[in-house]
């Protein structure tokens, strides 16, 4: 599903985002990428989104080698992954329904299909009654659920989450994580970049720990402390 081989990203100011990282994530996995601020989590997410180009190394996602993707192929690539951000990134002028429907309009889904699928997905994330609300009328948790609904509405094989619980209270954060777990159970590969220790410890999933841009540890069913112990 995801394969990074000797990937290094050096920013223009000389700072190293990630340094010679190699890892592999198989289809259907649930993986946490953890680390403190500046450890390289966001760099990795942005590389996977192809928002950044690696300085060296090879990245393959869903069978596509990112360095070989042309500008024209980018939309197709991004349609095969759902993305959830810490700041939700919802379209402020669209309702919850329209935000989710927008992702379907992009892939040229028919109106009928949109009318059938969007309510189902909204019900799944517990937002059936908020379909007509605008983002500024929602709580943080509800906004993140909307973002999640938008990310999964086209049933992508991969879901990429960058600090999805960063702006949420602990209770709401757990609700979001349970939703992600359910999505994963249904076969979607879920990659979550986070520094939320409680969440990582409570989920007991694969944990890849980053420190100063390198992989500190990679543990199956690990915890936050497992990764950083002895580093």
């Amino acid at each position: 599903m995801i394969k990074l081989t000797d990937v290094t990203k050096v920013y223009e100011n000389g700072a190293r985002g990630i340094d010679n990282v190699s890892l592999s994530i198989e289809p259907g996995e649930f993986v946490f990428i953890v680390g403190t601020s500046g450890s390289g989590k966001s760099t990795m997410v942005r590389l996977l989104l192809k928002e950044l180009e690696p300085t060296s190394g090879k990245i393959v996602v869903n069978g596509a080698e990112l360095s070989k993707l042309t500008r024209k192929q980018m939309p197709d690539y991004r349609r095969k992954m759902g993305v959830v951000f810490q700041d939700f990134k919802l379209l402020r002028n669209k309702t919850v329904y329209d935000n989710v429907a927008f992702a379907m309009q992009i892939v040229r889904a028919s109106n009928r299909e949109i009318r059938r699928t969007v309510p189902q997905v909204l019900a799944m994330v517990g937002l059936a009654k908020k379909a007509r609300a605008y983002p500024n009328q929602l709580s943080g948790g509800e906004q993140q659920r909307t973002a999640l609904a938008r990310a999964i509405v086209n049933q992508p094989p991969l879901l990429l989450c960058d600090e999805p619980t960063g702006n949420l209270d602990p209770e709401t954060a757990w609700e979001i994580m349970h939703l992600l777990e359910n999505i994963n159970i249904n076969g979607t590969t879920v990659v979550v970049a986070t520094h939320a220790k409680d969440i990582v410890d409570g989920m007991r999933k694969r944990v890849i720990g980053l420190s100063n841009g390198i992989i500190a540890k990679d543990i199956e069913k690990g915890s936050y402390d497992d990764v950083y112990l002895g580093v």
């Binding site: 690539y77 991004r78 349609r79 990134k89 919802l90 379209l91 402020r92 992702a103 992009i106 892939v107």
Partner: peptide
């Protein structure tokens, strides 16, 4: 710009 960025992340083409 934020709106355009979101559209791009979701996979919208330039022409869309």
């Amino acid at each position: 710009q934020v709106e355009i960025n979101i559209m791009k992340y979701v996979g919208a083409t330039d022409w869309f």
